[in-house]
Nucleic acid binder design. Sequence first.
RNA 1: GGGCCGGUAACUCAGUCGGUAGAGUAUCGGCCUUUUAAGCCGAGAGUCGCAGGUUCGAGUCCUGCCCGGCCCA
Length: 497
Amino acid sequence: MLEESQVIKVRFEKLAKLESMGIKTYPNDFRPKDKAKYIKEKYQELSPEEIEKKTQEFVVAGRIMAKREMGKLIFAHLQDDTDKIQILVAKNELAQEDFDFFKKFIDIGDIIGVKGRLIKTKTGEITILVKSFKLLTKALRPLPEKYHGLKDTELRYRMRYVDLIMNPKVRELFRLRTQIIQYIRDYFISQGFLEVETPMMHPIAGGAAAKPFITYHNALDMNLYLRIAPELYLKRLIVGGFNKVFELNRNFRNEGVSSRHNPEFTMLEFYEAYATYEDLMKRTEELFYGLALEITGSSKITYQGQEIDFTPPWKRVEFLDSLIELGGIPKEVLFEKEKLIKFAKEKRIELNLKDPRIGKWWTKLFEELVEPKLIQPTFVVKFPVEVSPLARRSDEDPDFAERFELYIAGKEVANAFSELNDPRDQRQRFEEQIKLREIDEEIPPEIDEDFIRALEYGMPPCAGEGIGIDRVIMLFTDSPSIREVILFPHLRRKEDL
RNA sequence: GGGCCGGUAACUCAGUCGGUAGAGUAUCGGCCUUUUAAGCCGAGAGUCGCAGGUUCGAGUCCUGCCCGGCCCA
């Protein structure tokens, strides 16, 4: 695709000219030995005279980010994967034709390799005095404006590669993302968990309440669903005799995109035999506290101006108590549908009145009235069984599940429970659910019989948890939008891009 | 889905009351041996998101649509 832009045309012409001169335009025989960051760190403190005495040759490759011609001197900045470093191309250091070549054919955006010794300029900047250089890749498109960079959010997401070239903070953020994920992975491995991979394509999309993406398998002539959660497969592995497993990978949910939702997102799920949701709360505290120390060096982070402290133990509040105490719903209103409808109406909260499950109404009211108030890490415990189809009933109160959700900065970050391992109860819950399929399209359309069968073989008592990794990354990178922490967030397709 | 804001040169942005489309960066030509948002002189560069409408005349006003951002559901 050729663009009419003048700058691009000129670049293509330069490339053609180079080829007509017999120059190999996309060579791959240059091996950088040094990194911008380490050169600067190591030699920054030396005086110009001390540096002048060093005859060592440095070999660096990277992208030209700025070019300043001054007659017989050309200053430029070279950016590699660590940092930028200034280079100086001086007429009296090179053959005439090489100097002219640099002047004429090396543009901002090009990737070049340079060799040369170090000097320190009058302003104290460590600089490579170029002895030789080689064009490695010609840039055919110009980089964005050097001072403001690439600001347009849409362009940043659509052309993340340019965003990464121009914005060091974005590169840092995604490095941090990887570090956080590695820390979490290391934690579970060190705790004796086995990392596993279960199917991404499911014949029945279960394990959560969400609309799935549908895909089609030609040879098998069947629909498959991109998984909305790995839960049911991980529990099969607990049945199979792995006592501690985790999976850290993508889930897919067919819902709208927003600053909080991307159709594919990264989820950690882990399952632990002979543990309860109480154990998982302790584990979760330990994980986040350790992560905070690792990433920030302290137990605290700042998210969007709010200080969040991960020092355990965290606050715990029962689901119904939170509706009363934080949601401001009078106790006598909570259990009476008519009063609850009136209350919701006054608060302009729309309840799905077709849904007979009062637990669903509570959940809605919880999202509206309680969630935003849960800033410090808080475990909300004991959810109604009717909105927790995979969780174990509480022994004391069988209408409630041994379940918690973790909230931080007003966002749901984790969801966990002691797992339901009575196949009779599980079947009954699925059957109850499926009756409601018509009013709730997020309910899976059929019972996962194989999962029930697995439970019939016997699943040891266990507990499992899911942690929304993208939200964790948002917290630790102080990002207001999920799109800032996903390299290539989904956007609507655009014809001319 | 609703409300508000935005879309103008490759990038960052101006564009007044409706009257021939602007700046800086980048690009091209020239000058310059310590510059760093280098500087100076000169030049080229536009489907003003798209489609209609109003008007003698629309980047500007009106309607619809597309894309994005923020807020709400």
